[in-house]
Design a binder for these strands. Structure first.
Length: 973
DNA sequence: AGGCACACCTAT
DNA sequence: TAAGATAGGTGTGCCT
């Protein structure tokens, strides 16, 4: 059963269904468009056949045996011999982690016991995979040296701390004797607050393993005594940095960058036979073609510039599974078999997948353009697919909801069938892929329960997760998403008949296989269309975090990574603050709207990148903040610092340039550069990369402010964030004053200009001009003039003209948007109105949308009212498809809660109890019909149950009609 | 009826 | 252990 998308949706969009109207039994229809597409791949393949070997499209009954040699394409290109004495090894690193292992002879670092080893995975230009073990890097943190501390005290401090840490350990299963590797005195300065560039002695404490940092920090905080010093509590610095980030910052490695291992500086690992082990010179442990050891200071990391902007020919594997569920029951891996797995493999940068294959249980007719492998035993199917994954050696694994459905299902199914060789999906031999539960919580995304599966060296890039993070959509089913972005839909197979198709014949199973293949193909198409891989890589490069962090972590880590890099250059260290929620601070101003319908052009002026430019203009940073009394203590004159609108003090850049302004300048100038290159570039692929880059740079710049205001965060600084919003409030107010004072009749203009609305960084101005082009002219001039009143890089820009403009309320308006041309509008822009809100059913959204069009384009408000009345009448007379009345989002979530509850068998706690309505009742109300009126839409049996969707929607539409009428009378049409 | 707390989702 | 920010409209439930 196609379980993961079975989120209980109502029959979707009556139209497409009525058109197709296929039910079980009607299977032997003509080939679908997708099948023709697949067949076209076959023709394209003929050309490359000779070079890459046979694609092998035939149906292959595999039976008891399986051999990867069935298809020579599966393997990566042969790797040329690598001689470390004469060859440099260059690869793009795509995943980076660390493990604890025995030291390798000849490599730097501790030689005793288990040591942390960084592991980088990547791909060379020729498409060969690389696993690189990086040795000698150990985790560390800082504390301020106590008064009177000299190098004579180092060994005693180290000894005492070491024994304290050892004593603190509950169990010492690794039998460690040395936990503290080193303690050094270094000259550093805290990045928090300006204190006259007073560089002080810090102790840099190097630990043997990353997990020893936290206890060492805790012990030092709690109060630590050593030598002649009294017991004291030490604050710590940079003790909360992930080990991977620590390494990347220190070695100047960023996510997805190119790594060069110079000749003579690394060692190649060879394949070892069983029994030939040598603990000091280990053999290959990974499935990668090249496996090497290198000292952490020997590798060269190339900044993503020039030729190193390129992307290696990564292998992207997309897959989808089908299981044969029982009627009406969510498939359970313990009971329901996996019957098909379709896989498509594409090289990043190429247009089409070069491997298209489907593994089926039982026979299946051939499909032109793809390889069908049939199995008689499910366990064989599973094991062979795992071997397929290992053979293809994918760098990126994608699909739709693979993280929370397909992969967990396969793993659990394999465990049920005792397919012992299945759960080794990573690139490191002998590391079992294990399922874990995790819950990720943020204000932005709420609580999200996720399954986590380790697959060392392969990046799991679940398209659903990407879409949930980056796009606000009404529905996240693969079908809806494909339609939205590709105007294409899934193959038409009702999930309820999947089991029947499986139990039919090789023709019905073929139909299922085509469906399954398409579900593996669509994610690839979407990745390509949305440029996800490229955009994520650019984000990793810009912010310096590993690719995987972008999907598994929040926003903060990206800023931390950049902050640490900038701080290191200046000898600054980042304090560890313990997160505690405090009082909210004041945010932006929303100018009281002059509500109404404007049949004159309204010019809109915006501050571009308002918050970043405020931080740059006023040098707001941790390092420039003057804490209470500091100004006097440091003998600063009033010329040395500024007072922000919130009364906070910051030194000027003449005294010290802040880190945050530096980061922002780098980001924004890099963005300018990327945009300039984008303009010049002709190669579409390079263009995509550059566009992804400029987008990443913009997003990164905008997230710096949020980081300083994140009270439960790594380094909140409300003085910065409240000063930023304070400046913003002042600026929007001043902008309003300036515009209204200059553009007056008294100053020789046609009319007195009026700012009718504004939010945070924008003002909407009625300039009193008649035409769009005139509004553009005056708007441009006004923006430039206002800009001259502010400190660079703060800049007010003319952005667009609305004509006409309907201002309903704060954060709710609509208008025809003119920016590229003054003759024709680019679009109808709707903000905050039902049409853009996902908590409304499509009937209401469509109704309002049509009304707005009638009002704004046809300029016929009476027509809008008439339309609303017509819809009401349709509703009362049963002429509206019930699916139009359902809120997809609500439905999806309720269905998911329901499914989750069924899966757990646990008592479900209502998050929001609506009128004592239980989850089951809610589910059934959304899923089917109101229990009382049975969904009747006729007025005679008007249902007044609060839980009746019809009643609810009728009320809603009625209200919207009222609103329309109110609008008409309010604005005097 | 009106006020309040809360949920949800958007604008910026 | 990790988690960007605040402002604000609209609707529901519940109390007085």
């Amino acid at each position: 059963m196609d379980a993961k998308r079975r989120n209980g949706g109502p029959p979707r969009g009556g139209a497409s269904q009525a058109k197709r109207g296929k039910t079980g039994g009607d299977w032997e229809d003509s080939p679908s468009i997708f099948e023709e597409e697949l067949a076209l791949f076959e023709e394209a393949d003929m050309e490359t056949e000779e070079r890459e070997g046979q694609a092998g499209h035939d149906v292959i009954p595999v039976g008891e045996l399986f051999s990867a040699d069935l298809n020579p394409r599966w393997r990566r290109p042969q790797a040329a011999p690598l001689n470390p004495d004469s060859d440099t090894l260059v690869f793009q690193q795509i995943d980076l982690d660390y493990y604890l292992g025995a030291a390798v002879a000849g490599m730097p670092g501790q030689s005793q016991g288990n040591v942390p080893i960084i592991r980088m995975f990547g791909v060379t230009d020729s498409g060969n995979s690389v696993c690189c073990h990086v040795h000698g890097f150990a985790p560390y943190f800082y504390i301020p040296a106590p008064n009177g501390f000299t190098s004579d005290h180092l060994s005693e401090f180290k000894r005492e701390l070491n024994s304290a840490v050892l004593k603190d350990m509950r169990s010492n299963k690794d039998n460690m004797s040395v936990t503290v590797l080193a303690v050094d005195i270094t000259r550093k300065e805290s990045m928090y607050g300006y204190h006259g560039k007073r560089i002080a002695d810090f102790l840099r404490i190097t630990m043997a393993m990353p997990r020893l940092i936290a206890p060492a920090k805790r012990l030092l905080e709690q109060g630590f005594k050593f030598g002649p010093f009294p017991i004291q509590s030490f604050s710590s610095y940079e003790a909360n940095i992930d080990f991977e980030i620590r390494f990347m910052v220190d070695s100047d490695v960023v996510g997805c960058c190119w790594i060069e291992l110079p000749k003579g500086k690394y060692r190649v690992r060879e394949e070892r036979k069983v029994g030939e082990t040598d603990v000091h010179y280990p053999g290959k442990v990974s499935l990668c073609q090249y496996e090497v050891d290198v000292g952490w200071t020997q590798l060269i990391s190339h900044p993503a510039e020039g030729e190193y902007q390129r992307i290696a020919p990564l292998r992207v594997l997309s897959f989808d599974i089908e299981c044969a569920g029982r009627k009406g029951i969510f498939p359970e891996a313990e009971k329901d078999p996996v019957i098909q797995i379709a896989s498509m493999v594409q090289r990043q940068g190429e247009k089409e997948p070069f491997i298209r294959t489907v593994f089926t249980l039982q026979s299946c007719s051939s499909i032109v353009g793809s390889q069908v492998l049939c199995f008689t035993k499910e366990s064989q199917l599973l094991q062979s697919w795992a071997e397929f994954v290992r053979t293809v050696d994918a760098d990126i694994i994608t699909g739709y909801n693979i993280q929370n459905f397909d992969l967990p299902y396969l793993l659990n199914r394999a465990a049920t069938l005792k397919v012992s060789l299945f759960p080794y999906l990573g690139r490191v031999q002998g590391i079992k892929s294990v399922l874990r539960d995790s819950s990720f919580q943020s204000k932005q995304m709420g609580r999200r329960e996720n399954k986590i599966l380790n697959m060392e060296g392969r990046v799991q890039f679940d398209l659903l997760q990407v879409l949930l993070r980056d796009y606000k959509l009404r529905s996240y089913t693969l079908n809806a998403v494909s339609f939205h972005f590709l105007q294409e839909q899934k193959e038409d197979v009702q999930h309820s008949i999947i089991t029947d198709l499986q139990n039919g014949n090789e023709q019905t199973r073929r139909r299922l296989a085509v469906y399954c293949l398409k579900d593996a193909y669509l994610p690839l198409r979407l990745l390509q269309k949305l440029m996800c891989v490229i955009n994520y890589m650019e984000m990793a490069r810009v912010t310096g975090v590993p690719l995987t962090y972008l999907l598994s972590r929040g926003q903060q880590i990206k800023v931390v990574s950049q902050l640490l890099r900038q701080a290191m250059k200046q000898g600054l260290v980042m304090p560890v603050v313990k997160p505690e929620a405090g009082e909210d601070y004041t945010g932006a101003t929303v100018i009281e709207p002059e509500k109404g319908y404007y049949s004159v052009p309204i010019a809109t002026l915006d501050f571009s990148s308002l918050y970043p430019s405020i931080m740059m203009a006023h040098n707001l940073c941790y390092t420039t903040l003057l804490q209470k009394g500091s100004a006097e203590k440091l003998g600063l004159t009033p010329e040395d610092f500024i007072k922000t609108p919130t009364g906070d003090l910051f030194v000027k850049s003449s005294v010290r340039k802040g880190l945050l302004p530096d980061i922002l300048e780098d980001l924004l100038s890099a963005r300018k550069k990327a945009k300039a290159e984008l303009k010049k570039e002709t190669d579409p692929f390079k263009k995509q990369v550059l566009d992804g880059r400029q987008l990443a740079l913009k997003i990164s710049a905008n997230s710096v402010y949020g980081f300083t205001g994140a009270q439960v965060g790594k380094l909140p600084c409300l003085e910065i964030s409240q000063s930023v919003t304070g400046f913003g409030r002042q600026m929007i107010e001043q902008t309003k004053q300036l515009v209204e004072s200059k553009y007056t009749i008294a100053n020789g203009y046609q009319a007195d200009a009026k700012v009718i609305y504004g939010d945070t960084d924008s003002v909407m101005v009625k300039l009193g001009v008649d035409t769009v082009s005139r509004a553009m002219e005056v708007g441009r001039e006004a923006a430039e003039w206002v800009s001259s009143h502010f400190t660079p890089p703060i800049k007010l820009e003319f952005e667009k003209v609305y004509y006409p403009y309907l201002l309903i309320n704060k954060k709710r308006y609509a208008g025809l948007y003119f920016s590229s041309s003054s003759d024709t509008h680019d679009k109808m822009d709707c903000k905050g109105i039902e049409t853009v809100r996902r908590d409304n059913c499509t009937l209401v959204a469509n109704l309002i949308n049509t009304c707005l069009q009638t009002i704004l384009i046809d300029r016929d408000p009476q027509g809008a009212v008439a339309h609303a009345k017509e819809v009401i009448s349709d509703l009362l007379c049963n002429r509206i498809d019930i699916s139009q009345l359902v809120i997809t989002k609500e439905l999806t979530r309720t269905a998911q809660e329901y499914a989750a509850k069924q899966a757990d068998g646990e008592r479900h706690r209502e998050r929001r109890n609506i009128g004592g309505c239980t989850l089951e009742e809610r589910f059934s109300r959304l899923w089917t019909q109101c229990q009382r009126c049975q969904g009747s839409l006729h007025e005679d049996v008007l249902c007044t149950s609060r839980d009746c969707p019809i009643f609810y929607m009728r009320k809603k539409v009625q209200k919207d009609l009222d609103d329309q009428e109110k609008l008409v009378s309010r604005f005097g049409w």
